[in-house]
């Protein structure tokens, strides 16, 4: 059981988290944040193993991971 919390206002939509996620559950939202980026969001959170690869690779330190 793990959880990723995304600060969607810090996210710049670079998509790097979507590449490194081994479970492929990080995707880009269809909505916009205040900076007009599509922020990252997590689908199927129950699949998250808390590896924190997404957070490690995020250039904007927009993610927190709980396990």
């Amino acid at each position: 059981m793990a959880k990723v919390i995304i600060d969607q206002e810090r996210c710049k939509g670079c998509e790097l988290c979507t590449i490194v996620c081994p479970q492929k559950i990080m995707v880009m939202s269809k909505s916009f944040n205040k900076k007009s980026y599509h922020p990252a969001e997590q689908i199927n959170p129950e699949k998250c193993n808390g590896c924190a690869f997404c957070a490690m690779t995020c250039p904007d330190v927009a993610l927190e991971v709980y396990k």
């Binding site: 710049k12 670079c14 998509e15 250039p59 904007d60 927190e64 991971v65 709980y66």
Partner: peptide
């Protein structure tokens, strides 16, 4: 659940001014 990844204290809260994806 335990926080396993958080913003380090040695960073301020100021959002980075860099382009998307910049390292």
């Amino acid at each position: 659940m335990k926080k396993v990844f958080a913003r380090p204290k040695s960073l301020t809260e100021v959002p980075f001014t860099y382009c998307p994806g910049c390292h």
